[in-house]
Design a protein around this nucleic acid. Structure first.
Lengths: 179, 179
DNA sequence: GTCTATACGCGGATAGAC
DNA sequence: GTCTATCCGCGTATAGAC
């Protein structure tokens, strides 16, 4: 039930945008009544917060799996794997990812969700540190930001060729690191 | 009067976000009544559209001025100037720029506003083409996207050191081009 | 031209039936 | 536990006074 509501909310975010997401539309789309919805969520923003938490957890899991897996790889290879994971995540549901990215800062996320959001940057930072990159935290933030920008734009433009996109993001990332 | 309304809308977008922007709040902040507001704008979204158009025009003007000025500079210098201009624009009102970036795709912009938005990418593309960069349009889109991502994140994080930021963006941009 | 007052609809949220 | 019905407040938009 919770899953049905969240999935309905996600679909509405994708098709109608933030404005179109109301307790009524979510309930309708989920095939339940508003009353039932309020038994599982205290309100509209709680739905958004939980949806964000789930998506972040999703991405964090991917990132960590790849990162653990790439422990003995070169920095280039490890980064490429991370980029692939991030692109896979974002191009899976580009409009959703974009909407959540935007509202995240204005959301009152619980500690867990905040931690998850930071996981991504700190995973990258750790990787960079291990390979002797200077200012790993700053670099990680920059790399994540630029990758996000590129992937986000690609998603908006309807680009679907993940591999070509990954190659270009890699170029930008490696170029940043080696200049 | 129109200017007062738009400035009020901009301030509300910055402080309250998209949800907080209503015809009432805008009118109040502008020091006029709702009735007067409707004499100048047919509705809420018209305000957003016009605000977007103005901001885009603002940035496009900066970009073109710099671009014309840098006609005989090296590619590196020209790009750095463009980056400085873009950062100057975005860090001037980071929350506003971020909000408009997000809503722009869902806005029914008139032809002029669309053209202005494209001006930025095509200015960069022309510059790249002149210097023999392959796939200039694709590269321009990527460069703008990654710069936007970095500057946007910086603005969110409250970073105010434009010069340091510009240096990092330059690194990313040049790294992308020369790899 | 600008205001106040108001009609109208919609979304959030709850009460109470089943 | 889920539903329907309903209350309340707010935002859009307009009508009409000044």
């Amino acid at each position: 039930m919770v899953a049905a509501i969240l999935e309905a909310a996600a679909r509405i975010l994708e098709t109608e945008g933030l404005d179109g997401l109301t307790t009524n539309t979510v309930a309708n789309r989920a095939g339940v009544s508003v009353g039932s919805l309020y038994q599982y969520f205290p309100g509209r923003s709680a739905i958004l917060a939980e949806l964000t938490r789930r998506e972040r957890a999703n991405l964090a899991t991917r990132i960590q799996a790849v990162s653990a897996d790439a422990r003995n790889q070169s920095l280039e290879t490890a980064l490429r794997r991370l980029i692939d994971a991030a692109i896979g995540h974002q191009l899976d549901r580009p409009a959703l990812a974009r909407a959540l990215d935007y509202i995240e800062p204005s959301l009152a996320l619980d500690d867990e969700a905040v931690l998850l959001a930071e996981t991504i940057v700190s995973t990258v930072a750790n990787l960079l540190r291990k390979h002797g990159v200077t200012k790993p935290t700053e670099a990680a933030r920059d790399l994540v930001a630029m990758a996000k920008g590129m992937v986000d734009a690609a998603g908006l433009a309807g680009e679907t060729n993940s591999k070509a996109l990954a190659t270009r993001v890699s170029r930008a990332v490696l170029g940043y690191l080696y200049n």
